[in-house]
């Protein structure tokens, strides 16, 4: 079923919309949520929440890319839950792998934490991404925005998992250098 057909079902308030969306994008949502929360039960709950919210908002929203729309919603809900867990000092004890990886980018030799202007950081990040070839940029976003697992990224990009690993490792290193150069580290 195409995105347009799915959106039409939502607009018509046809309950098949949820089931069909679950069939098409449920796995993507679970992967995004799992990548951030590192807990399958949470991933399932977040996915259900996303579908519920989609049912509420999609008649008004007409996203160009339904998958991206749902994935963004999943990321936001997952991040909120991660914040709750952090505040409550629970969450299964598992730290999201993407945060561990991003720690490489933020590590500096002096190990001094700077107060970061969010807007400047956003600009620096966009500069970094704009300078990348499309393949590297999309791999970066799939991993660190959507928190997708490496085999999924490899399958989507039709490259080997090891190439994804190496590419990400180099991108983290380059991002670290870029952030140092821009004065964030």
């Amino acid at each position: 079923m195409t995105d347009a057909e799915l959106l039409a079902l939502f607009v018509q308030r046809d309950e098949r919309a949820v089931a069909e969306t679950q069939a098409k994008y449920g796995r993507l949502c679970r992967q995004v949520a799992y990548g951030i929360l590192a807990n399958q039960q949470d991933a399932e709950e977040i996915t259900n929440d996303v579908l519920m919210r989609a049912w509420d908002v999609l008649p008004q929203e007409q996203p160009k890319n339904l998958g991206a729309f749902l994935a963004v919603m999943t990321r936001n809900l997952s991040t909120n839950r991660l914040d709750q867990y952090t505040a409550q000092r629970r969450g299964g004890g598992a730290r999201p792998a993407v945060l561990d990886e991003l720690a490489e980018c933020t590590a500096s030799a002096e190990n001094v934490e700077h107060t970061v202007d969010a807007r400047m950081l956003d600009d620096a990040l966009r500069q970094f991404l704009d300078a990348l070839p499309a393949e590297q940029r999309t791999v970066f976003v799939l991993r660190y925005y959507y928190a997708l697992p490496l085999p999924e990224i490899a399958a989507r990009k039709q490259i080997g998992v090891s190439k994804v690993k190496v590419m990400l490792m180099r991108l983290r290193k380059r991002l670290n250098e870029h952030l140092k150069k821009e004065g964030f580290l």
Binding site: L99, A103, D122
Partner: peptide, 13 residues
């Protein structure tokens, strides 16, 4: 800067 701040910045892409 923490990894979480970077993660959030990525989230604002």
């Amino acid at each position: 800067m923490t990894e979480r701040e970077l993660f959030d910045a990525i989230g604002r892409l």
